[in-house]
Design a binder for these strands. Structure first.
Lengths: 176, 176
DNA sequence: GCTGACTATCTCGACATCGAGATATTGGAG
DNA sequence: CTCCAATATCTCGATGTCGAGATAGTCAGC
């Protein structure tokens, strides 16, 4: 720490320990990729239980919530085509069909005939689906904000900015 | 952008678009949590295909690689107890048993009797397992470094530092 | 108006993981 | 010693997702 700027100080965490183990075992490998992507993955996994608990209180799992929230934030009439949904959610078309079946059976969405394209069977939130999605989303955002409490507002903002730059570059890349 | 410092500028990305949609639909909700955790999740998902392709070239999936790499970085004799493994990997004990069975059948690990505790059946890399893990790890780190190319070294370092602070706080929290 | 390439969605068998319970073992209290 | 609560791992039925293929519909060009 003495020869480092404070801004570069890396805090003790699970991925940091991993990095030191690799340094011992394979000192010639550059693990900077892991320092970012490995931590992003670890944080995602670690935050999961708290967030899933929110959805479970509303009778949803993460995948189902993802569908409902995508429809909700699309704005009235809260309707999207399955293709838009599975691309946005980064899942397979088959996986989406299953989620939609569950949500339809639960009365949270309904399938409405497309106006123009007969191949398409758009999906739309029901009133209950809209209410459920909004309630779960509000609680989710409250929990997620709490998970970031240890960071100052400035750190959160800087972190979001750096992540958005990385995300932008990943989206732009051919297919990495 | 005019009224903002450049350092706070948020780049165009998928989660940024989501944030603007929520701003339209539910303007009173604070979505800062999503700006960080949502992006961490999105980046993890977006980086996945490129990384999985590496493992696939070595005949592994991500879960199997995670087991092998955990054993490898533990150092000689590359042996850990199943409990250490599933806790480190953040999966269930049952899920680990299945991964171990596959890896054992593939000849990449072997189960050796514990010296002291008869309840425990530690797992150890075979020579082939060690070689496979190292080769896949080296390639993985090369790909991950490339995925970060769009960021300067300083940005990567700052990002890693902020993520480590967040990860540390999540690990410290009771159970969030 | 046909035709063929393309698109949108669904079907379905394979499979990895979960998670509650079963089995075997340990170690400390009495 | 003997018990029993705690521990380590495995078993196994349920389930969510993948992904290749099937089905139905569209549209541009002839």
């Amino acid at each position: 720490m003495t020869s480092r700027q404070f801004a570069d100080a890396v805090f003790e965490d699970h991925v940091g320990l991993r990095g030191r183990q690799w340094e011992q075992e394979l000192p010639d490998v550059d693990t900077r990729g892991m320092a970012v992507l490995g931590r992003a993955r670890w944080i995602t996994l670690a935050a999961r239980p708290a967030i899933e608990a929110v959805f479970a209180r509303h009778g949803l799992d993460t995948g189902e919530f993802d569908v409902l929230s995508t429809l909700l934030r699309a704005g009235a009439p809260y309707r999207l085509r399955p293709t838009e949904l599975y691309r946005s959610l980064m899942i397979s078309s088959g996986g989406l069909t299953d989620r939609l079946s569950r949500l339809e059976k639960a009365g949270l969405i309904e399938r409405v005939a497309a106006e123009k394209d007969g191949r398409s069977l758009p999906v739309q939130l029901t009133g209950e689906g809209r209410a459920r999605a909004e309630a779960a989303f509000r609680e989710d955002m409250a929990i997620e904000a709490r998970l970031l409490d240890a960071l100052t507002e400035e750190e959160q903002s800087r972190l979001a900015q750096l992540l958005s730059k990385l995300a932008g570059s990943l989206a732009a890349a051919p297919q990495n």
